[in-house]
Design a protein around this nucleic acid. Structure first.
Lengths: 218, 218
DNA sequence: CTGTTAGCGCGTTCAT
DNA sequence: ATGAACGCGCTAACAG
């Protein structure tokens, strides 16, 4: 039976027919949990997102789910909510669930210590941000360059008093974008006003508060 | 060992210590797949959403994930993308994964036939929309009443030419809201202009197109 | 080509 | 209070 459903070619047509008939008759469905236990792997990808309400991450989720679906995989979604402790818990959980792989947008650059070595046991890819102390592939944008160009563009248009709201210094994106901002100002000989640059944990609410603070400046 | 970790009280303190020490030493982690196979249940909730990029559903996902987390459950997320066939596949998948329960926002009122009876085998709750041919609890809003009040409000403010863009007639929300719209017009003796009421599958793109059509009307 | 068997890692039951 | 054995449903290996 296993062989028939697995598409093993070395089975007689007649036997295959009989098995398929029985499958139909009993509307049998293979138990994925048992299968997963047996092969020590599951057709599931753990997706640990740092903020499920952030539209950027939403489109990530959508895209990942999309190609996973096309390949017969499904998604174990976790929302770390920018909380390293929750992230750690979920990372361990994914390992314990035998997922085929993990995609994570790390909440911080330094990861909290993991129970055992999740990374060694489960394929993992980082997205949008990195954990600096973990050896794994990552898909990233060049935040420094992007921020630098952004600020340079404003300067070219005659602006001199330029603010910035970016992620915390302990998140790749925040650190790099801040660096791009600072360098662009330097490169154009503009003096920095520290109060104009704010770093927050990247949630909508924090950004709004920071913006309000900037706008209230004299 | 199993007894210790399960918190079974009938085990000697000294033995418990020894077990705990070993657990620590080997940093042992229970295998959730094996557990799930054994108890025929998992601490996982299947969440089948009809459009992951819709901010309404995003907040649903967030909320569900939140309370699941607090109870030690995690989320198996699926995006049916308003496609009944994908929904059917995922419903079956959730059953095959032995999830503890399913939350679904149905893509259509009439569900496609399910392989076997998923509903009989797995607790299920419908959210925002119903499947009319499935016996299960549902958490809903009163769409008819809401649409009725909305339109009545516009009428009270002097408007007479009122358009509507709602979900398809084969989705609970679409059907009910349309009914509220129609009734409100009737109740205030306003003649319906059929071209003003459009029903589409509720995706951002469809809504934008419909709006453009409405605005192009003479 | 096909039937049988072992074992994945648990929780539970049956004996102590 | 604890150890031993069984079986959840599957796949892979082994034997015919």
């Amino acid at each position: 039976m296993s062989r028939v459903l697995a598409g093993n070619p070395r089975v007689h047509a007649e036997l295959r027919e009989r098995v398929l008939a029985a499958v139909e008759e009993l509307n049998y469905r293979p138990n994925r949990v048992a299968r997963s236990l047996r092969v020590q792997q599951s057709s599931t990808i753990g997706l640990i997102i740092s903020d499920i309400q952030n539209p950027f991450f939403t489109s990530v989720v959508r895209a990942v789910e999309d190609v996973a679906y096309r390949h017969g995989y499904s998604i174990f979604l976790c929302n770390s909510d920018e909380d390293p402790e929750k992230e750690r818990l979920y990372l361990n959980l994914m390992r314990d669930e035998n997922v085929g792989g993990i995609i994570v947008t790390p909440a911080r650059e330094k990861r909290a210590a993991l129970d055992g070595d999740v990374v060694a046991q489960t394929p993992m890819v980082m997205l949008d941000r990195r954990m600096v102390d973990v050896e794994a592939d990552a898909v990233l944008t060049d935040n420094l360059e992007a921020a630098h160009r952004l600020v340079s563009h404003l300067i070219a248009n005659g602006h001199r008093r330029i603010g910035a709201i970016v992620g915390g210094a302990d998140i790749t994106t925040g650190r790099e974008r801040m660096e791009g901002y600072v360098r662009a100002l330097q490169d154009h000989g503009i003096e920095r006003t520290p109060a104009l640059a704010i770093q927050v944990i990247p949630k909508e609410r924090n950004g709004a508060e920071a913006a309000a603070r900037l706008l209230a400046l004299p």
